[in-house]
């Protein structure tokens, strides 16, 4: 589904991603871990198409298409979803209107007719229950005055509504208390299927107790320096990141 080959990117001439290789297939959950500043969020931003990043090398194929050639909105319309680390507050844009616009623009891209109001309402209700998102928040301005946890839950609600092929969760767990973490994780687990895939970016192993990954990758200094199964996450939790940073690994 997603094939990243030797991806290099940076900001203002400063290289941040120094050759990332990653293969994600349908039905898989990949966790990307790593210390602060290793390039985790940059990878998410580059995949979603944030303009501040300049891609200097490599390629990304998403479902047979060259992802890096697509505009931000077309990447989303092709089925890529980024759950933001810091969701933006937009006063004056209602959550529901935002979702309807997004959903219908994605449908138009796929040459499907707009969803009728009744069906949209039914779907909203169903998904909002599925991910335990407060019905009152659905009608409010987009993220305005939401708590940190509510914003993250709204990301998962949007994910449920837009049904992407590939979802990238950028530190969705940061700033969440244990109850919010459980709700967010339950939502993701309910949305997992053999047709979609998840890339879960996290700093902490804690999230991976709830969303169990098939693969764990460690990103350090712009490269994936180690890959393994969920046991790797436990090892990281126990030993920290220092042993990964040893020169021996960067040679391997």
């Amino acid at each position: 589904m997603l094939s990243i080959k030797n991806l290099q990117a940076g900001i203002d001439g400063k290289q941040i991603l120094k050759g990332i290789n990653l293969e994600v297939n349908a039905g898989e959950v990949h966790a990307i871990m790593g210390p602060n500043g290793s390039g985790k969020s940059s990878l998410a931003s580059v995949l979603a198409g944030r303009e501040t990043y300049e891609v200097t090398g490599g390629e990304v194929i998403f479902d047979g298409k060259n992802l890096l050639d697509l505009s931000v909105e077309d990447r989303a319309r092709e089925g890529l979803f980024l759950a933001f680390q810091y969701p933006i507050e937009i006063p004056g844009v209602s959550n529901i209107n935002f979702l309807r616009t997004a959903l219908n623009e994605i449908r138009a891209y796929r040459q499907e007719p707009p969803m009728d109001a009744k069906e949209f309402l039914r779907m909203t209700k169903e998904k909002q229950q599925l991910v335990e998102f407060d019905a009152k928040l659905v009608n409010r301005s987009l993220n305005e005055g939401f708590s940190g946890g509510e914003k993250k839950r709204n990301e998962i609600f949007q994910l449920a509504m837009l049904e992407p092929k590939l979802a990238i969760l950028d530190e969705t767990d940061s700033g969440l208390d244990i109850d919010a973490l459980r709700i967010v994780s339950n939502g993701v687990n309910k949305l997992r299927s053999d047709k979609n895939a998840f890339v879960v970016i996290t700093h902490y192993q804690r999230l991976l107790e709830y969303i169990v990954p098939d693969f764990v990758h460690v990103l350090y200094n712009g490269r994936i320096v180690k890959s393994g199964t969920k046991e790797l996450a436990l090892e990281l939790e126990e030993r920290g990141y220092d042993w990964i940073k040893e020169p021996a690994y960067s040679n391997s």
Binding site: P87, I88, I90, V93, I106, Q158
Partner: peptide
Amino acid sequence: ALFYLKARGIGE
């Protein structure tokens, strides 16, 4: 905010 909206498939 523009990026956030576009990242949900909403055109420029």
